[in-house]
Simulated assay, not measured.
Amino acid sequence: MGRYILKRVGYMFLTLLIITTITFFLMHSIPGDPLAHMAKNLPEQVKQNYYKKYGLDEPVFVQYGKFLKNIVTEGNLGESLRYPGRSVTDTVLENSKVSGRIGFQAVSIGIVIGITLGVIAALFRNKWPDYLVMFIAILGITVPTFIIAALFQYLLTVKFEILPTTGWGSFKHTILPTIALAFTPIATYARYMRSNVLEVSNQDYILTAQAKGVSQFNIVIKHILRNAILPAITILGPQIAGIFTGSFVIEKIFGIPGLGSYYITSINDRDYTMIIGTTIFYAAIFVVAQLLTDILYGIVDPRIRVSNKDQ
């Protein structure tokens, strides 16, 4: 298992290097000058000083080499072109805490409620609980997140005035964004778990346990749930990354100062360093989440640990 984890960590860093390289050269291949709009009214000598400060007067491969060196040796993603003096690394770390808090709450709620609803739907197949869960799942998958957010915003802030409409500061400000973001994970896990539980329930060892008089509760907890949850773990990594990358609109709707708002602003402002930095951060979240998913797979299913030792 240790060798497998080391191999996966190596692949993780290789993936990040490839993504960093592609993003860097794509950004520098876009026509135009990122400082043209900011420095258009400045004297020529001042413009040249700006280009020299950000290294834009050097060949792109030299800029790339210095960029990688700063990341590896200092963990420095550079300085924002739009906001001179503001470190990209500090901005990403500071604002990702806000996005991360909402994302963690949404994923946690989505996993717990989604798995519970999926098991209930499978145990009451073709009955009203099953139909209700599938109806919720269809809504969560087909209805866009911003529609759900706007609906809850109207009901709970305008109609009944229970929660704040926008802003950030207290736990109440996180409730509506969390609910809006959690709908998709709830729907996804409910569908996956329903299908997996139905498949596992027809296995011979489940029928044997039922014939031996094992209680339904023990069968579900000890046999069905542990085996049915394995395929659902596969989507955990993409779900975590999707919560971060899919929170842009939600943060905009609720006025949340998360990383998504900075990412959108950096694209509009052509802030190369901020775009590259946030892209690397999102990529890192995805590959780390995939790594943790693989490790969790080995913890839940001992057969995977044994197969990895044989490799």
Rank of each mutant, 00 (worst) to 15 (best):
S261Q: 15
G169L: 11
L230A: 09
T166L: 12
I224P: 13
Y282P: 10
A36V: 01
I71G: 07
Q239S: 14
P238T: 04
L81R: 01
F244A: 09
L156G: 06
G103E: 00
F146T: 10
L291P: 10
G213M: 02
L117H: 03
A190S: 15
F254C: 10
I240R: 08
I267T: 05
K47G: 10
T15L: 01
G298H: 04
V133Y: 12
K159T: 14
P43A: 06
L198I: 06
I276V: 03
N49R: 11
P129M: 08
K222T: 01
I109H: 02
G277F: 09
T116P: 11
I148T: 08
F146D: 07
G110I: 05
I275R: 05
F13Y: 14
S201E: 11
N95C: 00
D269S: 13
R226G: 06
Y51S: 11
P34C: 03
I275N: 07
P31Q: 06
N41Q: 07
L230N: 09
T145W: 02
I256T: 14
A187E: 11
P84A: 02
T20V: 11
F217Q: 13
A284R: 11
I256Y: 09
I115V: 15
I229T: 09
I19K: 04
T145G: 12
L296E: 05
D204I: 13
L123C: 05
S307D: 06
S307W: 03
N268M: 07
V98F: 05
L16M: 11
Q48R: 15
P238Y: 09
I102G: 09
L225Y: 12
I186G: 13
G78L: 04
R82P: 00
L123P: 04
A190M: 10
M38K: 15
W168L: 09
T245Q: 15
I162P: 11
G75A: 09
I22P: 10
G237Q: 02
I175H: 05
G75L: 06
M134C: 09
G2W: 12
V107G: 12
G32H: 01
I138G: 01
I235G: 00
I233E: 04
D33Y: 03
Y272L: 12
S87A: 08
L207G: 03
